[in-house]
Amino acid sequence: MGLLAFFRRDRSANHAKERLQILVAHDRVGRDSPDYLPLLQRDLIAVIARYVEIDEDKLTVELANDGISSMLAVNIELPRSKSQKPELRNPHGGLRVRPQLA
């Protein structure tokens, strides 16, 4: 092996380790979340969709655990719907939700 080749030696195992550490940490977060989260997310979508049109991809349900307490965070991005009347919009730009009577 020449000197140049020695310094250019493939050290890809280090990349493998770094990528795995990130990947496995991410996988474990998903694994440790309780089974009801996907169902909860589905039900939340169903309830909210009764009142506003939402994009299912823009709803996330996460359970964060800091070792002392758990926090359920539901994040819903509401669209700026054209069909909504202007007075429904609140001054902060979000949407006020007015239940529709059946």
Binding site: D10, R11, S12, A13, N14, A16, K17, L20
Partner: peptide
């Protein structure tokens, strides 16, 4: 360095 080592 081509393969993950045991410790990794």
């Amino acid at each position: 360095g081509e393969m993950l080592k045991l410790e990794d």
